[in-house]
Simulated assay, not measured.
Amino acid sequence: MRLFVLLSRFPYPLEKGDKLRAFHQLRILSKHHEVFLCALHENDLEQHWIEEVEQYCSELQTIRISRFNQIVNLGFSLLGNEPFQVAYFYQKAAQKEVLACIEKWKPDAIYCQLLRTAKYVESLNDFPKIIDFQDAFSKGIERRLETDSWYWKPILNSELKRLNHYEEKVFKTFDHCTIISEQDRNQLPFTQRNEVTIVRNGVELDDFSPSSESKSVDVLFAGNMGYPPNVEGAVFLANEVMPLVIKQIPEAKLMLAGARPDQKVKELAGGYTEVTGWVDDMRDCYAKAKVFVAPMMIGTGLQNKLLEAMAMRIPCVTSTLANNALHAKENEEILIAETAEEYANHILELLDNSSKSEQIATAGHNLVTEHFSWEGTTKPLLNILAPAP
Rank of each mutant, 00 (worst) to 15 (best):
R2N: 13
L3S: 12
L3C: 14
K16I: 10
L20N: 11
A22P: 10
H24W: 14
S30L: 11
K31W: 03
L37M: 15
A39V: 13
L45F: 11
E46T: 11
E46K: 14
I50P: 09
E52L: 04
Q55V: 12
C57M: 13
S58K: 15
I65K: 08
S66W: 05
I71T: 13
L78K: 03
N81T: 12
F84T: 07
A93M: 08
A100H: 15
A100E: 15
I102Q: 09
I102E: 07
K104M: 13
K104Q: 15
W105D: 11
A109E: 05
Q113C: 08
L114S: 01
K119E: 08
E122D: 04
S123F: 00
N125R: 03
I130K: 09
I130A: 02
I131D: 07
F133T: 00
E142P: 02
R144G: 00
E146D: 02
W152G: 05
K153T: 13
K153M: 10
I155C: 08
N157E: 13
N164M: 11
H165R: 15
H165V: 01
E167V: 00
K169F: 09
V170K: 08
F171C: 05
I179K: 04
N186M: 08
T197V: 14
V199I: 13
N201A: 10
N201I: 12
E204H: 15
E204I: 15
L205N: 12
D207H: 12
D207Q: 09
P210H: 04
S211M: 03
S211V: 09
K215N: 02
S216K: 01
V219D: 06
L220E: 04
G223H: 00
E232C: 04
G233Q: 10
L237K: 01
L237W: 04
A238H: 12
M242A: 02
P243T: 03
P243Q: 07
L244P: 08
I246V: 14
E251F: 13
L254N: 00
L256T: 01
A257H: 00
A257F: 03
V265Y: 01
K266W: 08
A269Q: 14
T276W: 11
W278M: 05
R283Y: 14
R283Q: 11
Y286R: 03
Y286P: 12
V291Y: 11
M296V: 03
G301D: 03
L302K: 07
L302N: 02
E308N: 08
M310N: 10
A311S: 14
P315E: 11
T318G: 06
T318F: 10
T318N: 02
S319L: 12
T320E: 07
T320H: 15
L321N: 05
L321K: 05
K329F: 10
E330G: 03
N331C: 14
E332W: 11
E333H: 05
E341D: 04
E341M: 00
Y343I: 02
A344N: 10
I347E: 03
I347A: 06
N353K: 11
S354A: 05
I360W: 02
A363M: 00
H365W: 04
H371W: 10
S373N: 09
T377A: 03
T378E: 09
K379P: 09
I384F: 15
A388E: 06
P389Y: 07
